[in-house]
Each structure stands twice: as structure tokens, then as C-alpha cells.
Design a protein around this nucleic acid. Structure first.
Lengths: 349, 349
DNA sequence: TTGTACGCGTTATCAT
DNA sequence: ATGATAACGCGTACAA
């Protein structure tokens, strides 16, 4: 029980401009003028008002200000799970850009639930957010798409694509994946497995497209059994790797695309005693400390998710500042980079 | 230019209860009654009102509601950088608990800047947040402490300690570190280095305390040169490891406490060609995919940061629901676990 | 230069 | 059961 200040211990009373005005012995209009870059206020009055504000610890109610038409300067960011390092980096990138422009970023997780996505859209709508960065889980969600198009603010899709007039940012997964597969083909691989998720969104389509086109271009027939595309979870990587290894003719290379997949794939490979790259070549995405420091170091497809978040925020800002129409379509693409390390070799003879 | 719906293309007009009332042909009070579990409204009227709401796409303004005294049901979470997996996991834990109780979590990064911390405190104050989860950068910040104690909402400190009547949650770093050092001492190590950050906060003090007490208890004199406690950055781990290796009598073991330090330490060790655990024993914290899958697998001090976030939210909720006094002191401690893997051995003869 | 009064959109209290 | 109206805290046009 420290002898603290006179801070109310239980229910802090609402203090308003009127209280400040009374204490300072002025009218409420004057208080308002003092706090809002007043063009004309006597120094003496200003001091008195500021003293009163300080004494009472008053802060203007954002709600009341907002009712007066003052913008909330708040934008939302909705994605499935903050623990995904890709998303937290994007959020930080967006936050940095937005904070710099005087906006506050409000981050919320949807857990990949359509119901929670619409719920959050409604929440941001009621709170009068000015814009939204959104990584929708299922691009085919009718309800969510409807909510987006009827929302009173512009939306920028992140790593997703909708048949709606909104901005979008994403990494060039097509080229990244294609280059990785071409590299493996060049090494002599013919049975290349791909483990990933997002079957129903832009990222997944781009990756599949890159994979398939690389194979087709090289005249190699693709085997559907080598495409394991149902989840980004580490567990999935573990299970599917085991499954692949158990097949009659297992792959000689695995491309694992998704933050957490690499650990699962590596675990399974080690458990089975498979040597990388001797018995199995491996390429992952995105880059990570694990990929850099694993033994052998893992060749990866890398892209800068922090930068992706920045670009998304920039795209949104252009709409907020009226430089671009509310519903203008636009897509910004972040490049992917192929980082050669030591996890690939020619297939075993 | 898709022939989209009638969505306004530039400036969506503010639509209000009055609009809804007009369209439905009722009074605004009735609209309010319909949306707020109206105890008595004719089914026919209710249907008309709901139809009007749907037609106009109206959502009540949270600002106006808040002015009427409706709680914001919003709590803030401030920490240095969302990209730290520890924080994003905590945030998700807190978000899960709070969302379940009908609260929205607003996450904001301070970048470890005192100025931004006070700025955010002010922001949450103006927005009438109902509570705050806070991981202050410097426990000695006078301004920030003042802002916390005069804020009109309860605060729960995360992994930090203040001489203020607030709740707090943290992991038991003292025991975790002490057990790790005792283990190394038991292996025969006498020169044990510790690399970490947070010299001025609870986490750092607990870790230093555990380290020092373990040494003292074993009658081993501590060498201040082995304590490198100025940062959690990967780069710092890299540089300090190099520095330690360059000393006349280098350590035989390193304890690296901080999410990103392990990668830096490992990089430096590999660059110098030092074998783990043959020439150098290594213990890290927290656990990570890298620690699990590095070769050799790294022995770690582990704690559940997601759970830590949950506990913090629970502590705050008790205050919000009035079960506990606004400024009651309380500390919840999460256990740390010592996970033995393969990165430690007896020191080289 | 400073004070007064109105309105923002909602909920709640009256009447009807 | 429903309609009219006051009040919440702030910014600002207008009056003094």
C-alpha cells in the first residue's frame, strides 16, 4: 500500500472541458482554442488553461471529437494469426508507415474464421475506421466480400485477390516458385514434391502455377500425388513428408512453401534418417533463422514481408489522402529472391 | 472498371438513425429499441426497421454510443516490436482471452521509445480504452510511470515491474536461469558467459540474479567480463560472442537469453569454427524452431509466452469486471522449464 | 480576444 | 407500443 497520489482508486470520474474551464476561470470555447493550435489566445490565459488541464489530467474524448466530424485516423489490419512471423512483420511495416502519417493501426486476428472476419469488418465499421488492410482467409467467401464492398472505407488486400475494386499487394510467388523448380530440374530432379497451403487463394495459385509451368516448360509430366497443398502448419509438413517418403516412388526433392512447414519437413527427414541434400533436396520459403542456420543451410525463396506491409499501407494512404479514387484497382507486387544455399544437389543415382 | 454495385465511389455519406427511421417510417427511438434487444416492439415494425437498416447498410456509430456512456470494450497492448515472436504470441494469447470476453485488443508498437510510449498512453486515454497491457521499455522512465498512474484505466505490466499499484505478469526467469547455470556448473564449467539485454528491467534483474546466485552458491567467483548484457539483438549476440572468443581466457559455456540472440551466437561460433558442445557449451532462451532443429539441438530455458499473454488478460479482466480493485497489486508468475538437448558437455580439458 | 449556443448520433426518459 | 426530446463532450460560428 504505497502512499500514492490522489489518483482515484476505483471509478475515475469523467472530467470534461467544462471542468477545465471552471478551474481555469474561462469559457469552454477558450479551452478548446488553447488545445487546438489557437490562433489567438492571451499568453496569460493559455498558461492558466494549460495549468488547469495538467492539474485535472484532462484528455479530450476521442468519441466526442469524432462526433464533431474529426477523423478517427485509425486503420485496421485483419489476418488469421499474429504469431505468423510473416504477418507480424507486415503489421510492423504497415504500422511504421501509418504512424508516420499520423494514423493508428489496429491489429486483429480472425483465426481464419469467416464469421470472425465479418464480425471484425462490422466492428471497424462501427468504430469508423478509415481504411483496412486485409488478408482474407477464403477468397471465395461471399459474405466477407459483400461486407468489404459495402464497408464505408477503402480496403487493401494483402496476398489475396478479390473480384472487387480494391487495392492489393502481394509477393511474386509465381516467379519465385518457378525459379526454384527450374533450378531443381536443372539439377536433374524429375520427381519434385511441393508442400504448401492456401489452395484457394492467390498465393497458392501463383505457387502452383509457377510449379506447373516450370515442369511443363521442361517437358516433365507432373504427378498430382506430389502436390500436398492443404495446410501451412508444421504438423502438416511433418506428416506429408512422411507420407511422401513412404510412397513407391518418392520424390527426390521437396519444395516447402510456408513459414512453419520447414521445421516439420526437417523433423520428418531427420527422423527417417534422410540426408539433405544427399538423399533429398530441399527448398523452403520464406527465409528464416532456421533456414539460415540449419545444417545444411536451406536454399530459400525469400521476400520482404515487412516491405510488403509498408507497400500495403502506402497504397491505402493514397486512397485516404484522396490522391486515388476510393475503389480504384491497383496491384503492387513485391519481388521474390532465390537464395542459393546448401540444401540442394543432383538426385541420387 | 467493373460495373460494381451502387457503392459510393468516393465519399460515402454518413447515414444515421434518422435515415433509418425515415425509411422505415418510424421514430428514431424505435430504431434504437429494435437494435438494442427491444423489450417491446411489434413484429411488423421490427421487420420494417430491420429491412431499412439492411437497405441502408447502417451501423451505429461507436463514437456516439460511447458518448452516451456505452463502454468501448477496448483494451490496448503496448510493447516495443511486434516482430518479436515473444510479443506476438503474448498478444495472441491476450487477444483470445479478451475477444472471448467481448473486448477488442488494440496492439501498438513503441519501438522502445519513451516518447512513443507516453504518446500511446495518451492515445489510449483519449480513445477511452478500458485497460492496458504494457511492456514498458525502461522501468525507470519517470514520465511513462506518471502517465500510467494518472491514466483513467487499470494497467497490467508484462515482464516488467514498477513501483506502482498495478498488476503484473512475468515468467520465472530467476529459477530458469539459475537452473541452467547450475547445470553447467555441474558439468564442470567455471567460466560461464551470459549474453542478454534488459539490464534495467525485471527480466534482466531476475536472470542476473539467478546467474549470480548459482555461482555464489557453488563458490565460484563471477567475472564481470563474462556478463554481456546490453542488447537482445542478433547482431549483439554475434559481436559479443566474437569478443568473448577473443579474450585471453574465454568462457567454456555461453548462456544466450533473448529470442534473437541464438542466431547471432551460433553464426559467430560457426564462423570461428568452434564446435558445440565439444569446445563450447550453449544454452538459449526462449525455445524456438531453430533451437529444436539446429545441429546439435540447443538446450533451452523455455516458457509459454502465449500463456503469459492469457494470464495478463485474465488479470486485467478481473479488474475490468470489478472483481478486484482498480489499482490492486498482484503478480502472476509463469513457470520456466529447462529443456535438456545436446548443446552442453563438460568443458574441454 | 473571449463567451455563448448549436449540432454531431446515440440512448434513455418522458409523454402519448 | 411508439414518438418526441434531453443529454453525453466537443468544436466552432457568431455575438459581445
Amino acid at each position: 500500500m504505497s502512499a500514492a497520489k490522489t489518483t482515484p482508486a476505483s471509478r475515475p470520474a469523467r472530467i470534461t472541458v467544462h471542468d477545465v474551464a471552471r478551474v481555469a476561470g474561462v469559457a469552454i470555447g477558450t479551452v478548446s482554442r488553447v488545445v487546438n493550435q489557437a490562433p489567438s489566445v492571451t499568453d496569460e490565459i493559455r498558461v492558466r488553461v494549460l495549468a488547469a488541464i495538467d492539474e485535472l489530467g484532462w484528455t479530450p474524448s476521442a468519441a466526442a471529437q469524432n462526433m464533431r466530424g474529426v477523423a478517427t485516423r485509425m486503420v485496421g489490419f485483419v489476418f488469421s494469426d499474429m504469431r505468423n512471423p510473416l504477418y507480424s512483420a507486415m503489421a510492423k511495416g504497415a504500422e511504421d508507415v501509418l504512424a508516420n502519417a499520423g494514423y493508428m493501426l489496429v491489429v486483429a486476428s480472425s483465426d481464419g474464421l469467416e464469421s470472425r472476419e465479418t464480425q471484425l469488418l462490422d466492428l471497424f465499421s462501427r468504430r469508423r475506421a478509415e481504411g483496412l488492410l486485409f488478408s482474407i482467409e477464403e477468397e471465395s467467401s461471399r459474405d466477407v466480400a459483400a461486407a468489404i464492398s459495402s464497408a464505408p472505407f477503402p480496403t487493401v488486400m494483402i496476398e489475396r485477390e478479390l473480384a472487387l475494386p480494391v487495392g492489393a499487394v502481394g509477393a511474386d510467388h509465381y516467379t519465385g516458385t518457378r525459379r526454384a523448380v527450374e533450378y531443381l530440374l536443372g539439377l536433374g530432379h524429375r520427381r519434385i514434391a511441393m508442400i504448401s497451403g492456401g489452395r484457394r487463394n492467390r498465393v497458392g495459385r501463383d505457387r502452383s502455377g509457377g510449379y506447373l509451368d516450370a515442369l511443363a516448360h521442361a517437358g516433365v509430366e507432373s504427378d498430382p500425388a506430389l502436390l500436398r497443398l492443404d495446410s501451412f502448419e508444421a504438423d502438416y509438413g511433418y506428416r506429408e513428408t512422411q507420407w511422401l517418403l513412404a510412397q513407391a516412388s518418392p520424390p527426390t526433392a521437396i519444395v516447402a512453401l510456408g513459414s512453419h512447414l520447414l521445421s516439420g519437413v526437417l523433423s520428418a527427414l531427420r527422423m527417417k534418417g534422410i540426408e539433405v541434400p544427399g538423399q533429398m533436396s530441399l527448398i523452403a520459403s520464406n527465409d528464416s533463422e532456421l533456414a539460415q542456420l540449419a545444417t545444411p543451410a536451406i536454399t530459400v525463396i525469400r521476400y520482404d514481408s515487412y516491405q510488403l506491409g509498408r507497400e500495403a499501407a502506402l497504397l491505402l494512404l493514397r486512397r485516404l489522402e484522396g490522391k486515388v479514387a476510393f475503389g480504384a484497382e491497383a496491384r503492387v507486387e513485391i519481388p521474390t529472391e532465390f537464395v542459393l544455399r546448401e540444401s540442394c544437389a543432383a538426385p541420387p543415382a
